Amino acid sequence: MEPFKWKAIEMTGHPEKFILESWSEALPGLSAGFSGRNGGVGNSPYDELNLAYHVGDEPMDVLENRRILAKSLDFEPTAWTCGEQVHGTHVAVVEKADKGKGYLDREGAFQNTDGLVTNVPGILLTSFYADCVPLYFLDPVRKAVGLAHAGWKGTVGLIASAVIKTLEQEFGSRSEDILAAIGPSIGDCCYEVDEAVMSQVREGLAEGEDIAAFASPSVNPGRCMLNLKELNRIIMIKAGILPTHIECTTWCTSCHPDKFFSYRKQNGTTGRMASWIGMKER
């Protein structure tokens, strides 16, 4: 069953969203999900709900879109907190004083950061996508949450494991308690990679591990169709997450350009969606 439930635009100021509904049941007051591309402001090729400053869109439009999304989630816009992503594996621990970092501009974000964790209510962790894989983490026992941005580089660099380890070290989380989710991203139906990528994927495999679990030959010689979602799921399990605690989307961002920005589908010039997770103040 698809864990990310599509919510159409209800009215002005209520953007298209994909909500991870089951997690709000695991921890009341939690909000987690993924934005669509519709229901914001902005002009082509960034129309409508672009949420990232770095793509060349008008900064005031991006800021307004962040405000629209945060308010639709019942968070103050200044709760918006993010990293300046570099396809790396650094995980930042977000404390109360860090609330709002990156909301107004790129310079204020956590630099060189693709993962975020916090146990502070009232902070909305966010990160940005146009095909890469959003990873979500929730420890309902310790009341801690995390996000990771996982392209192929972050995936083979084991950013999923890095977030889990950070939750354990910083908040005393136990891997068997942690829930994980894999959000909308490009699927193996559309994600074709060359040998330069696959060679690095193979380097990260354990001896005897079957690459067929997450890659298959392309119709184009020397290339493969790579399933980053499944590869991240395998990495999570190796890091101690119970298989039954991992939910995975069926949405492919490249297959649905009406709902998502896709870097590959739109030849590199497009907006960015956002993943988010946060615990509301009570």
Rank of each mutant, 00 (worst) to 15 (best):
S44E: 13
A215S: 06
L116I: 14
N220H: 10
V145P: 03
V219N: 13
D114M: 02
I235E: 07
D131A: 00
I211G: 04
D98L: 07
E25R: 06
P140A: 01
R174A: 11
H149F: 07
P140N: 07
E247W: 00
V91I: 10
G240N: 10
V41D: 00
L226K: 00
R142Q: 11
S185E: 02
C224R: 11
L124D: 12
I164W: 10
T89K: 03
E10P: 02
S127C: 02
C82H: 06
E176I: 01
A92R: 00
G108F: 09
A239N: 12
E195W: 08
G157F: 12
N50A: 14
A206C: 06
G88K: 06
V219E: 15
E48N: 07
L27N: 07
R233C: 09
D105Q: 07
I182E: 03
G108V: 08
S173E: 05
G151K: 07
K229Y: 05
R67A: 13
Y129S: 02
F214D: 01
A26E: 15
L51H: 06
M273L: 14
E107C: 09
S254D: 02
V141L: 03
K165W: 04
R223F: 11
R67W: 07
G33T: 01
C82N: 07
M279I: 15
I246Q: 14
A52L: 12
V62L: 03
V145F: 00
A52I: 08
E48A: 06
G271E: 08
C252Y: 04
R282L: 12
C255T: 14
G56N: 06
D258I: 10
R142I: 13
L124K: 07
I235F: 03
S262E: 03
Y46N: 03
V86T: 15
F214A: 02
A180L: 08
V62S: 01
E170L: 09
G187C: 10
L20I: 13
A109H: 05
G40D: 09
Y46S: 02
V93C: 05
S24Y: 05
E2A: 06
F214N: 10
K259I: 04
K71N: 13
K238A: 05
A239L: 15
G39R: 13
D194K: 01
V91F: 09
G102N: 07
D139E: 09
S254Y: 00
G36F: 02
L135F: 05
R142G: 04
E247P: 08
K101N: 09
E21N: 15
L73S: 09
A32Q: 12
G83S: 09
M279D: 00
D139G: 12
D194E: 15
